[in-house]
């Protein structure tokens, strides 16, 4: 059966090569013209993206942007209205079980059975995914090691803290050696310290296993760790690039300042200084400059209007989102 399938896969591959249909660099996740609409509502609008092997791909956007819909389609939980989605070479509507074997998912909400122990939860997962009987024990030890939960293997999950439960879910998602790990808002509902820990584990995992990760988040700092970020709003992907590149597109650093007379200060800045952009919001002046280090020393010396406060910062993804949509990401 297995042999027959690989044979068919091979044949398919040869045919594609012969016909020249095979893409030069096939991604682990390929999404083409993906659309999902409900009766009167377009949840995902013609999305296109590719995720490469070993990459951390972040999906950033406010709540309701279409992130969860996308992840549900990629994980076979939801049928797309149209478009083509393949994961690890398998179509998510035609070869659902092949896709399911290729992916691990950490859901937004807790999907552990709290009345069972950590070990029982993991053992059930091994059975659902057909992990060979003789390898189960070793695998369970291995994943528990990664998330530092070896000592709690026989405790009931309901006794675990929120952070421990998250870690156990991450461990469970890895048990069947998925090609891609989906993380849907992995740190939502956790305190900042636990959030930091969870990310430590995720990054450690990435180093150790070179696993491909697809994560959705509305936390900006979490998106920053991605190799590439897709920014989504109202069902549209409005930008995809490396976080650094996206920020560079904004054209420089941001200087925030308060003065005794904001109107006068803006007049003065526009007249005397070389800035990309200057704006006033909530009594704070925002200046965009190409290179803040060179700009600021001269600026402080020569500005006539008295300054009451000054803050220089590198642009964040929130600034990127703001420049694309005119809104803050947390609106």
């Amino acid at each position: 059966m297995v042999r027959a399938n690989t044979y068919v896969d091979r044949m398919g591959l040869y045919i594609k090569i012969v016909l020249g249909l095979k893409r030069s660099e096939p991604g682990l996740i390929d999404v083409q013209n993906l659309k999902k609409s409900y009766k009167s509502f377009q949840a995902v609008n013609n999305s296109n993206f590719h995720v490469k092997e070993g990459e951390i791909f972040g999906f950033l956007g406010p709540n309701g942007a279409g992130k969860s819909t996308t992840i549900n389609i990629l994980s076979t939980m939801l049928k797309p209205t149209s478009g083509e989605v393949t994961i690890n070479g398998y179509d998510v509507t035609k070869h659902r079980n092949r896709v399911r074997e290729s992916i691990g998912i950490i859901f937004q909400e807790n999907t552990l059975d709290e009345k069972l122990t950590a070990k029982e939860n993991l053992m059930l997962h091994c059975k659902f995914y057909g992990v060979p009987r003789l390898k189960r024990k070793a695998r369970i030890n291995e994943v528990l090691e990664i998330v530092d939960l070896k000592d709690s293997v026989n405790s009931l999950v309901e006794k675990f803290s929120g952070g421990m439960q998250r870690r156990l879910e991450i461990a469970r998602g890895l048990l069947h050696y998925p090609k891609v790990l989906f993380l849907d808002e992995p740190s939502v509902g956790l305190d900042p310290q636990t959030r930091a820990h969870i990310w430590e584990y995720i990054l450690r995992l990435k180093e150790k296993e070179n696993i491909t990760m697809f994560l959705t988040t509305h936390y900006l700092d979490e998106a920053e760790i991605s190799d590439r970020v897709a920014i989504m709003d109202h069902g549209d992907i409005i930008a995809i690039d490396k976080p650094k590149k996206l920020k560079q597109q904004l054209g420089g650093d941001i200087i925030e300042m308060t003065t005794t007379d904001n109107e006068a200060a803006i007049q003065e800045i526009k007249a005397n200084f070389d800035v990309v952009d200057v704006s006033l919001k909530d009594d704070v002046i925002y200046c965009k400059v190409e290179n803040s280090d060179a700009f600021v020393s001269n600026f402080i010396k020569t500005l006539q209007t008295p300054l009451t406060g000054l803050d220089i910062r590198k642009p964040t993804l929130n600034d990127v989102f703001l420049s694309f949509t005119g809104r803050e990401i947390r609106d």
């Binding site: 076979t76 079980n97 999907t111 659902f128 995914y129 057909g130 469970r172």
Partner: peptide, 10 residues
């Protein structure tokens, strides 16, 4: 949520 763990498995 446990149903999702089952439904997303093969």
């Amino acid at each position: 949520g446990y149903m999702r763990e089952i439904l997303v498995s093969p």
